[in-house]
Design a protein around this nucleic acid. Structure first.
Length: 305
DNA sequence: GCATGTCAAGTTGTG
DNA sequence: CACAACTTGACATGC
């Protein structure tokens, strides 16, 4: 059965994730910084518990956790560790609640580090920062039992082959908590499904197939072929496949292609309907968009036996 | 209150 | 060369 996933945020439900800026934090001494960060992490960990309850209530099957759940965790100047925070124990207890709800509701949790996290850069400082960010997300993922940390292949730097070989070099050296969760997704400007298949096969990395990116950045494969390749990459590691769907805000011909509020059901690939897979819905209207698509596809609620 | 400018980070393509 | 786009606005400031 196909399960739909919500990405990061809610529009209707009063569940919010708070943020901080380094510029403001740096005005305070370390103790005050940690007190403020602790309050944010505690609140965000509570919100994540509430998020899982709401996702289950709505009948969705997956949730993508926002990367800055612990704001500025890997920041070079104001970064910190969980144990540095005065309310570390309460925060850890909330993460444990998330994990037990995840299991009770049979949800799937994932992370999607932002565009700054990439393993193909020729610049060592970029790679070092990315590895730190991946370590952080893997730490969170372990505590809440999220099985996916999904990234893009990054930049081309004039030569895709050498960029991909730098990526491969980094992947084989990753610590196990990152390595076991890492997935690669086709993007809308540089790396297509066809570009990623060889490295995914060589390293046994599952491929997250984003059909919107594929339509923006085609590679000669049909949607059915790309879907089959994605499914095979997950079957190879014995795990449930992962797909992404969004609709363009201004039609397929507009140049900037921001996400639309809702999914146009005509953008949903028919061959996906009967898959056992997770489909993240990237739409600005958030849970309303997921609800609407579920209704239009006549998909049953997730998690009701 | 509400509008506005700013916020850690990379890379690419457009105007 | 500046800026928007990307998985996603939130926050501080000033009126």
């Amino acid at each position: 059965m196909l399960r739909l996933g919500l990405c990061c945020l809610f529009k209707e439900a009063p569940i919010r994730f708070r943020a901080a800026t380094a510029k403001v934090l740096k005005q305070y001494d370390r103790g005050e910084q940690l007190a403020r960060l602790s309050a944010l992490c505690l609140e965000n960990s509570r919100s994540l518990v509430a998020a899982l309850d709401e996702v289950q209530r709505l009948g969705f099957g997956a949730f993508r956790v926002c990367s800055p759940l612990f704001p500025l965790y890997t920041h070079p100047e104001v970064g910190y560790r969980l144990d540095d925070l005065p309310q570390a124990a309460e925060i850890a207890a909330n993460l444990a609640r998330v994990k037990s709800r995840k299991s009770r509701y049979r949800l799937r949790l994932s992370f999607h580090p932002d565009q700054f996290t990439l393993l193909s850069s020729p610049r060592p400082e970029v790679t070092a920062a990315s590895l730190q960010e991946l370590d952080y997300q893997a730490l969170l993922a372990e505590q809440i039992d999220a099985d996916v940390i999904n990234i893009h292949a990054g930049g081309v730097y004039g030569d895709k082959e050498s960029a991909l070989s730098r990526l491969a070099e980094q992947v084989v050296a990753l610590p196990a908590p990152v390595r076991s969760r890492l997935t690669l997704e086709n993007d809308d400007v540089s790396y297509t499904v066809a570009d990623l298949l060889p490295i995914c096969e060589m390293l046994s990395i599952p491929l997250v197939y984003d059909v919107h990116h594929h339509r923006c950045n085609p590679d000669g494969l049909t949607v059915a072929e790309a879907t089959a390749a994605c499914l095979q990459s997950w079957r190879r590691v014995g795990r449930e496949p992962y797909l992404h769907l969004s609709s363009p805000k201004n039609g397929w011909h507009a140049k900037p292609k921001p996400h639309a509020d809702f999914i146009d059901v005509k953008d949903f690939p028919g061959e996906w309907l009967d898959l056992n897979a997770t489909l993240d819905i990237e739409a600005k209207a958030k849970e309303s968009a997921v609800k609407q698509l579920m209704a239009e596809l006549n998909l049953p609620r997730w998690g009701r036996e």
